[in-house]
Computed example of a mutant assay.
Amino acid sequence: MTAQTTPATAVAGERESRHAPLILTLYGLYARGEHNWLSVASLIGLMADLGVESRAVRSSVSRMKRREVLRGERREGVAGYSLAGSTLETLAEGDVRIFRRTRASRGDGWVLVVFSVPESEREKRHALRTALTRLGFGTAASGVWIAPGHLADEARRTLERRELSAYVDIFTGDHVAFGDLREKVRSWWDLDELTAMYADFLRRYGPVLDAVTRRGPQPLEAFGTYVPMLTQWRRMPYRDPGLPLELLPPDWNGVAAGELFDRLHTVLSAPAAAHAAGVFHSGRAAT
């Protein structure tokens, strides 16, 4: 905590950091279908339905604008926000990760990213590590990151888009020797952390699926469940690169978590979208 940061402002910042992922989920789900724009009133109305007050929404949006995730834009005299171009590209790639997950096989081989960054450009080293972590890469050695081979193209596009390609070389190939590859995978990725993330998702949303399948959820209820659920879920396909099942523990819970997400998406997405559309076209979105 800095000298200028009080406990109250620190707590407020933590709350805002929790709200920003919800806002990004809303834009990913609904703004793109509305010509990449939501009015301020629509956004505040939808976030209110998620239990977030308008002041917190405005503060989170201000931070997202400073980070060039959102940009202010008036349409027909109405204030609103749209997604920046780079954010649109990231969300488009995220759609594949989230809704069309790919499970690698041993035959896919591996992609290696090798990088070297001068000490004078440490911020680039941090940006590289962050980008590769979000792509699901594991760490094979210092400056050597590894992922299943099917992620090679996505890694190339991401590093080019973030202007980091000058620092890296990308290779693809097979593991020829030595050692037990299952043990190496466990050392390259934090499987215990992933297992805990999936376990939390299963524990939180398994009972929800039982409840919503016994009765058809109303639009507001579906919206209030679906958006936070998707917000929690969408981190996991990035941390988990879809490793071959034969290299994972036999009781790997990522499969069950993925099946739970798919079923919740099937049940909740349409009524949640109906609620969002009602907000867009109601008086709540007109100011």
Score class of each variant (00 low, 15 high):
E93K: 14
G216D: 12
G77E: 05
A211N: 06
G80Q: 01
N253L: 15
L248V: 01
R97P: 02
D240P: 04
F115I: 07
G138K: 07
R284N: 04
A222C: 12
A177V: 10
L243E: 00
P207I: 08
W233D: 00
A222T: 08
L194A: 05
V117C: 11
V168A: 02
W37I: 10
A10H: 13
H126T: 14
R129A: 11
S86E: 11
A8F: 06
S59R: 14
S60C: 11
P237M: 14
L88Y: 03
G143P: 00
G242R: 02
A20D: 02
V212Q: 04
R215G: 06
L247F: 00
A273Q: 14
T139N: 07
A147K: 04
R101P: 00
T213E: 14
A41N: 01
A131T: 09
V113F: 01
H281W: 10
E16F: 03
A272F: 11
I44K: 15
H35L: 10
A140N: 08
R214C: 01
D200Y: 05
M64R: 02
V117T: 14
R134F: 09
N253W: 14
L43F: 02
E246D: 09
P241L: 01
M64A: 11
L260K: 08
G28P: 02
T139H: 08
L159H: 04
G224R: 14
V57D: 03
A127G: 01
S116T: 14
R15Q: 12
W188L: 07
V40D: 04
L135S: 02
R157E: 11
A92T: 05
L248T: 00
A285I: 07
D49L: 12
D262G: 06
F201K: 08
L132D: 00
E16N: 08
G85M: 11
V168W: 03
H35Y: 12
W37Q: 13
G51D: 09
T2Y: 04
T213V: 13
D240V: 13
L260G: 03
G33R: 15
L91G: 09
D153W: 08
V96E: 06
D262I: 06
T130S: 14
E89C: 02
A286Q: 13
T158C: 02
Q218R: 15
P228A: 07
S116V: 11
H265I: 03
E73G: 08
V96M: 01
L46S: 13
E73Y: 04
R125V: 10
A152E: 13
A177N: 10
R263M: 07
R32W: 09
A147Q: 05
T266V: 06
L245C: 00
G216N: 10
Y198P: 11
D200H: 12
A48R: 15
L264Y: 02
M47L: 15
T5P: 01
G216H: 13
L38F: 13
M1Y: 05
L38D: 09
V168E: 01
L248M: 10
G278K: 02
G149A: 05
R74Y: 03
L230N: 00
L159M: 05
I170N: 12
V57Y: 06
R15T: 12
L83F: 14
M64S: 06
R67W: 05
A286N: 07
V208E: 01
A84H: 11
V227H: 08
L151D: 04
L132C: 03
A274W: 04
F223N: 13
A155E: 00
D192H: 10
T195F: 10
D262Y: 07
L191T: 08
G45W: 02
G13L: 08
R15Y: 06
A48S: 14
S82G: 15
